[in-house]
Amino acid sequence: MTWMNTAAIHDPAPLCGPRDVAYARRMTDRLEDSALMLRYRDGDAAAFEVLYLRHKDSLYRYLLRLSMNPHTAEDVFQEAWGKLIRARANYRPTAKFTTYLFRVAHNCFIDHVRRSKRHSGHSDAIPELVADPANEPERQTEQLLARQRLEAALKTLPDEQRDAFLLYEEGGLSVDDIALATGVNRETAKSRLRYANTKLRASMHDADAVENSVKRIPHE
């Protein structure tokens, strides 16, 4: 924890008085996640809104790609935030907030899988990928193909490796944080992340090679 974070945590000034909402919102925007969570623990609902806006989409995408099912992702997403809300009184900033948040989400997902026993990765459950209309048609097609390749490669990864990759990309967690969030030792987390990266890179490069060879055929 940095000295700035410590100072923010011990700042007892009320954040959200009736007349200072706008000022408080600007101030909370600058606060670190742990300080916001501590303010929410002390009863400041506006601090939670800032915290939620910061991390909601990345957490949702993490759960979406982990479960490969939008409905499961939404259920686990709400369950994770609900657990965080209920446990706010016991929150201690001993680790990075994102590590704490993604660990809660990871555990909720594991519990959900154990409860339902119906978890399966159906690729058609994720919304269809669409090209960005702002780009040129040829560029749009390339982007779409690349995303589809990565999406397909992600689905072929083992759950643990996909989990590690998503925690790295969506949560921004380090290897140590991934180990903490998933409850494994550092070497295991590092190995999973390396294997995931290698497989994704290989599958994308292989696809590029096949695509380039196909493109070259008509010109020859």
Binding site: Y60, A146, R147, L150, E151, E170
Partner: peptide, 10 residues
């Protein structure tokens, strides 16, 4: 590629 792919929102 992943960052381009992952644009879903809650």
């Amino acid at each position: 590629t992943y960052r381009e792919l992952a644009r879903e929102t809650v």
